[in-house]
Design a protein around this nucleic acid. Structure first.
Lengths: 219, 219
DNA sequence: CGGACTATTGAGACTCCTCAACTAACGTGG
DNA sequence: CCACGTTAGTTGAGGAGTCTCAATAGTCCG
């Protein structure tokens, strides 16, 4: 038995109930800011529906998307009492918003609940490692292929061959640390090679899973 | 007050005592393998002295250094009951080796101790984000500069302008996802530009902190 | 219909990767 | 003690891929 359980762990109904009792349900329109980097930490969030992006203004003036958030994701951990990233809704989004102090108290009471958060964090950590491996690849096509596989993994339970792509090409570029143009060329290449196909700009269908796996071998 | 405390948190003497009572102290010679990826998870480790590297064999046959481990670091978390990375000693190293089952029991008893692990994990998560930002930079020189700043942060308490570099150039290359040659060229460039200087191959002195900060602005 | 935003495509500059030769340091065994 | 092999690191030349700059479509919304 592992020290902590594995990916996307679910809460027990009772734990869920206890958390929900602390939380407020909030909705965000596309482009709405959930919180800004460097503002004081006040809430923890759990995504329920929709998609968000978590990004950071770099000193160089660039903006880097650190990660995307989807239903089930927990976000809002701070450093030195302040949020490190800015989180913004991409699609219409619903979140649980949990005030910090009651949560802290609850965590200190309930070992199991805290253990759940711990599990969630290790999952985050592994995802971060996967993103690092993705960024390690030189070619834009390889990074894009890996990105698609990461999304595929995230949405595994729903439809395996159709992946929603709610973010813009520009967001993807920022996440992959390549230019918007390179993302565009990479998608075109994958489409022409018959690996993927688009149903509109925000939905990808995996046509040739094997070749995608080859391109994204490492992740 | 933040949900979890900030970087490199220390245990209380009593907690340390409790952990130590579970742990065995083990030493590793350079190149010794602590554990291999995909083997069943059995222990958690805490680095006490020395330096280690944590790497992974990629499907493509390459080897990627995921992170380096230094005193205070906790490692050995698994996925589906198996270690995900291989950990190998770089210098002579001492670690605490903690068997899983007693630890799990202790964590479930002691909320504060578990909270400590949680804190440690969030710290890891932030470091992983910093590594991602580092990998986002195109130029090898920029990545190297960021790497040096990350090390500087890690060893902040000791000597600010002298950084130990126990790993080989090849390890650095693997960590930065550039070639060994690029690392070599980048170090040469930084030395010639008067930003850093070497006292032997495994100790760097920061000569011009300002310029280093400029080069590594984002991290 | 205009305007802003998003996305695609093209041409040249730049940087890194690949391949290769070479130097340096180190430890081993004769 | 020295020759040798191994490993680590440096440096060079050419090719590949992305970035920059720029122009062009497509799309959504007021």
């Amino acid at each position: 038995m592992p020290l902590v359980a594995d990916s996307r762990p679910a809460l027990t109904p009772r734990q869920r109930q206890e958390i929900v009792s602390l939380a407020t349900e909030v909705t965000y329109a596309p482009r709405a800011i959930v919180y800004r980097e460097r503002t004081p930490e006040a809430f923890l969030f759990v995504c329920r529906e929709g998609a968000l992006k978590s990004f950071r203004e770099l000193v160089s003036g660039r903006r880097r998307v650190i990660t995307f958030r989807f239903p089930g994701d927990l976000f809002g951990l701070a450093e030195e009492g302040r949020y490190v990233n800015t989180v913004q809704a991409i699609t219409p989004t619903k979140c649980y918003r949990i005030p910090l102090e009651p949560l802290r108290a609850k965590l200190h009471q309930d070992t199991n609940l805290q253990f759940h958060v711990l599990t969630r964090l290790t999952h985050e950590l592994r995802e971060a490692q996967r993103r690092s491996i993705m960024l390690g690849h030189r070619s834009a096509t390889g990074r894009l292929a890996m990105f698609l596989k990461l999304l595929q993994r995230t949405f595994a339970l729903e439809r395996p061959e159709t992946i929603p792509l709610p973010m813009t090409r520009s967001d993807i570029a920022s996440f992959l640390s390549v230019t918007l143009e390179s993302v565009s060329r990479a998608t075109t290449r994958l489409v022409k090679a018959g690996v993927i196909a688009f149903r509109g700009p925000h939905e990808v269908r995996i046509v040739d899973q094997r070749r995608l796996d080859e391109l994204a071998a490492d992740v």
